[in-house]
Design a protein around this nucleic acid. Sequence first.
DNA 1: TAGAGAGCTGGAGCGCACTCCAGGCAAGCG
DNA 2: CGCTTGCCTGGAGTGCGCTCCAGCTCTCTA
Lengths: 160, 160
Amino acid sequence: MTVLDSAPVGTTTPPASVCAVLEQQRHGRPVGRDRYTISEVAGCTGLSVHTLRWYERIGLMPHVDRSHTGQRRYTDRDLDWLDLVGRLRLTGMPVADMVRYARLVREGAHTMAEREELLAAHREDVRKRIAELRSTLEVLDYKIDIYSDARRRAEAAEGA
Amino acid sequence: MTVLDSAPVGTTTPPASVCAVLEQQRHGRPVGRDRYTISEVAGCTGLSVHTLRWYERIGLMPHVDRSHTGQRRYTDRDLDWLDLVGRLRLTGMPVADMVRYARLVREGAHTMAEREELLAAHREDVRKRIAELRSTLEVLDYKIDIYSDARRRAEAAEGA
DNA sequence: TAGAGAGCTGGAGCGCACTCCAGGCAAGCG
DNA sequence: CGCTTGCCTGGAGTGCGCTCCAGCTCTCTA
């Protein structure tokens, strides 16, 4: 069962995706330890360690914990956050907007309206893009049909 | 005649889109003149004149005609081509791939199989992306629901 | 105790897709 | 005639999202 066909039931049932199904599909999230090194996280998110550090520098991560020697220790929460970030990125949200969202989350509950607004705007964007993609799909189907018709005809002529 | 050079029109009907509905939606293609200046084309495609010249430099345009003083004169065919390019671009095809496609078109009929392959690969890509976007849409819906539930609850508490 | 390996930092570099600039030419207008 | 407008060229610059580098520390194993 993929992310795609998770049942969208009542208002409060999360799609399985939000629970980091994605990571499991990639390389599996190491289980039940809740303190992951940067390379483990890289492995299970598909991001590079460079990118993970960079995300932190630009304020896209909610304060990552450190070991006594100063190494990063990511939690399951961090992985969930990275899952969301990955989705927003895949759907084309600019990093700057994600940073803004991250800042709002850090600032606490009084920013929830603004966060909702931000996500709703992005949802509209995604909807528009789906429509665009679908319309291009039609064009592609049309053109590919023409090519394959031509090919079939050429093959038939050659056979004759 | 479309971009597809000597279209061996088969059983399929073109989606209206391929006939440059897009441009008409934007600023309208000047009618029936078939010789457009670069700024007219910029106006009706939404591309900048810089971008149009750049497309030509990198080999993404099929030889644009010139006036006696050396200025570009685009034809309806060029606009159709730009329509296709715009769609491929909107759907995330890398410019390098479009250039490759353009080269194949220039090289003539014997490259049709390769062109078909290229477009089919891109179609797969687009399909995958639509699925991705849809799955993120679920996540967004879920999160937005949470936010708006929380907001409604807060408003209710305030009202009480 | 030496070497390998993973992680740390600030900052430089890169690829893509434009975007703009300087300097010049041709046509039209008052 | 000068001025403005629109277009030309090669090449430099920009913004985004990473990606990599140099030089360091810490820990673990032989």
